[in-house]
């Protein structure tokens, strides 16, 4: 090994040691700071997945905008979906600070290299699904995102603070739809319970595999990217949501669910991990539809992006 390479190696080790110390001390990592390559990779994967989830998540709810049952309901739903597009934008920007472009991230989404949240591979079939998505899906997302407000990477943490403020409004609107339907006609109640039955388990799967099965967790905890385990977050979500369901008369579709006095938590039945793995690996009801839609829209918009760039190039040449 040459002398220069050896020096580089030593320097890297030193930098890595300093980095770990800083993160342990609770310092935020900023874009210009030195960081280990694996830290950067982990964050690019996580933030871009988060950004793609916001953007793909516009589809199932977008499916109901033109059929929203009142002007107010349409306004609220449209504003909510718009927020999600905005979250996608902040998160793409946060990931860009790590040296990847939006175009690259979109290419990775299209090739299947980058993922998005599994939950959006389920269909939004009735208006009650709009309630269930807001209440359960956004509710689960908030639990996760509140925890990420203290994540070690500065731009990601700041994006989360902003996003959390808007997500709590989303969850309330979803809950309001469900509550309204549970006060309504027999048809409406049936629709609400049916949506609950279909969305409950996929919502629990949003927190990912059990802690014992979570492949990326070790580094993420040491680097303080992740602050709570999957199972801790899932439990938190279950505990707050079961009570909300009871208040409006919805039944949680889990016969094993019961209050555990000693633990101070609800015990729940086993999650269908086979379904979870199948959907993650592409075999879910809407995987192909969601990705095809994104690809189609992206391809159809190509001429617009090219024209805008050509126009700006012309103007820049003139000045």
């Amino acid at each position: 090994m040459g002398a220069i390479q050896e020096l580089e190696l030593q320097l890297n080790e030193l930098l890595e040691k300093k980095f770990e110390e800083r993160v342990q001390g609770g310092d935020a990592v900023e874009p210009r700071d030195w960081m280990p390559e694996n830290y950067r990779k982990h964050l690019v994967r996580q933030i871009s997945q988060h950004a793609h989830s916001e953007v793909i998540g516009m589809q199932p709810e977008g499916n109901w905008i033109t059929r929203a049952p009142s002007l107010r309901a349409k306004q609220i739903l449209l504003a909510k979906i718009q927020d999600e597009g905005g979250h996608g934008l902040y998160l793409y920007s946060a990931a860009e600070t790590l040296g990847i472009s939006r175009d690259e991230m979109i290419a990775q989404l299209h090739s299947g290299k980058a993922k998005y949240s599994n939950i959006f591979n389920y269909p939004a079939l009735t208006w009650a699904d709009i309630g269930a998505i807001g209440w359960l899906v956004d509710g689960a997302a908030i639990v996760n995102q509140v925890s990420l407000q203290r994540t070690s990477y500065g731009p990601y943490s700041r994006a989360m603070v902003r996003i959390c403020k808007e997500e709590s409004f989303h969850q309330r609107q979803g809950y309001e739809i469900m509550a309204q339907m549970m006060k309504g006609t027999a048809d409406q109640k049936e629709m609400a319970q049916d949506a609950m039955n279909r969305w409950w388990w996929p919502a629990l799967m949003m927190f990912g595999p059990h802690d014992t099965e979570s492949p990326h967790a070790g580094d993420a905890f040491r680097w303080k990217i992740k602050r709570h385990t999957n199972d801790e977050l899932r439990q938190k979500f279950i505990d707050k949501t079961v009570q909300q369901a009871e208040v409006i008369g919805l039944t949680v579709p889990d016969p094993d669910l019961k209050w555990n006095e000693a633990a101070g938590h609800y015990d729940h039945g086993e999650i269908n991990w086979e379904e979870f793995r199948n959907v993650i690996n592409g075999d879910g009801p809407c995987n192909k539809q969601r990705l095809d839609h994104h690809k189609k829209v992206h391809a159809e918009g190509e001429w617009v992006r090219v024209a805008a760039a050509a126009y700006h190039a012309k103007k820049a040449n003139k000045n």
Partner: peptide, 9 residues
């Protein structure tokens, strides 16, 4: 109807 269908976010 443009929601999720525009050329840029």
């Amino acid at each position: 109807e443009w929601c999720s269908r525009a050329p840029l976010i």
